[in-house]
Amino acid sequence: MVLTRLIAKRLFGALVTLWFVTVLIFLAVECLPGDAAEALLGKDATPVAVENLRAELHLNDPPVERYVGWLGRVAVGDLGKSLTTNRPIAPMLATRLSNTLFLAATAAAIAVPLAIILGLVSALYRGTRLDRVISVLSLASISFPEFFVGYILLVVFALNLGWFPVLSGINPDMGLGEQLHRIVLPALTLVCLVLAYMMRMTRAAVINVLSNPYIEMAELKGCSRREIIVRHAFVNAVGPVANVVALSLAYLVVGVVVVEVVFTYPGLGQWMVDSVSKQDILVVQICGLIFGATYIGLNLTADIVAVLFNPKLRHPR
């Protein structure tokens, strides 16, 4: 009862945040210099032509009207047509989004378990050489900018060794195996980016839990170091770990623009950047909305996981 009310409250909060995000996205796009009509017709266009196109695209309507209209259409799944290519947005979005999710999911499937295991190991061997090695390597991996890591991987594994393709573009005709083979390098780059945060948070959260008297009690009950870390400490560290995992996953979906560009991977981020430069505001808006929804959804999931792992909320008095 307490639990369902709490989760309902979080869900409602997430919806309010999402609505706020739609307002922000709309305002941000409003602030872009110039508009689609100017961008489409180019520098040499006559003012009359620009004005006609503006009217056609409803760019002259009051902002509130345009916002409400846009929100209403998006809410019922009508994403409209791209202003620049005049093709429907929905199918393009589906392809781009599934590409991005495929890359993100692959990276996450490697990064999350690896980070948690490394975090537990360095908590278990805290202060030893192993702990320091893990710490230094993971710090080094986030200290290099992602394009640098990406290009290094490209040079070594694609150009010199020739194990993986230089271009990571995938299409639906390829089999899963070939798709995976093509995205190994971008996925690895992403793993390097997010691994350290999750690893260090797991380590810190577990070490924080280790200072509790019930950990000493477990030792005095004769538990081994491993039992203590895995059985007694990690369950109580799930809350903070879930949060940093959610943020990292969100980053995998949202923050991959540079990686997509380096590996010319046809994902959502690359598409959004293209569309900003072309003033294709409908595409920009929907991409922004999806990025926002991803963040909110993942954080909501982390909140709910933390709640579910809190025995006081799961088993009220």
């Binding site: 008297p213 019930y214 009950k221 004769g222 538990c223 007694h232 369950v235 792992f309 025995p311």
Partner: peptide, 27 residues
Amino acid sequence: PPRQAGMLRGRRITYVAQSAAASFNPA
């Protein structure tokens, strides 16, 4: 050795702590 220490603690010699509330694992 660790194995024998594990059998000693929690079986032959046991411990009752001051704050039971903090010494039981909440999970």
